[in-house]
Amino acid sequence: MNNPLLQVEGLTTAFRAGGALIRPVQDVSFSVAQGGALGIVGESGSGKSVTALSILRLLPDTARIETGRILFDGTDLATAGMTSVRGRDIGMVFQEPMTSLNPVLRVGDQVAESLTLHNICPPAEARARAIDMLRRVGLSDPERRAQDYPHQMSGGMRQRVMIAGALVCRPRLLIADEPTTALDVTIQAQILDILRRMRAELGTAIVLITHDLGVIAEFVESVVVMYAGRVVERADVASLFRNPGHPYTTGLLRAVPRLHDVQRRLYQIPGNVPPPTRFPPGCRFAPRCAEARPICTEHVPPEIALSPSQSAACWKHTGFARP
């Protein structure tokens, strides 16, 4: 296998919160192949968004990366000078396009901005390329719409603008954090279609962060499942859905309501996702897990390989014994 494009190794991110230190992301590792599509799936509080912000070095002042390395094409991003990479080699799309776009700047100028900021081309050409990109993400009449301000657009159109801005420099990696969560389902279908097409056209690798297993199933090749700040399972998408290795993944898959399931009752995982201030010791899922044994609440389970493309951090794969 070629060198991965993005490699995250042992990432732990800490936040100061009222005198205490909390770690919403702990010892997280994964990699993304050149041109590949990786999904990070988890519920609120799983640490998936903090992981994205850590990679992009967009953490608030109260947070810092405690341990771990983030390699982009073999170079440590801690030493690379993030401002030259972010926006040029790594594009990003966030959930809420209204707060991510500048309200007082015309959308055409915002899309062109990263081209001029990184001195990729002169302003006139940047403008033309921005309009071309707006056309490619499916904005009708892009010359005229480029003159609009974000508030004149619908949520779906703003998300197209965000995607155009993220892709205009032809980045090698796109990090998309819940890019369709705030959108209606018919608009979500349009946006996923655009992301899929742009990925094919530009060869951009994608890290797609979402809580939606349906989006995961349709869009990515490999998946990292996070729960309460840790990776609990990683797998190729087919194995994950067919043969999940972690009880949390199993529960999540059973809990998803399905369109063609006639059963009246939904499967429910007991209990609640713990906040980062109250992560339990051992396996963090143990208090909600039907299969838990005493070892689970005492020791953090190691990641056990189940196949070359799947591993799960669960003691059941060692027969509940420490190796």
């Binding site: 979500q188 279908a189 996923l192 349906g214």
Partner: peptide
């Protein structure tokens, strides 16, 4: 349009054009 948690499922997706 609703994405379904079934990887590789054959889909007959209708992608509506335009906005509401």
């Amino acid at each position: 349009a609703a994405p379904e948690p079934e990887p590789g499922a054959v889909r007959n997706r209708i992608i509506l054009q335009g906005e509401i």
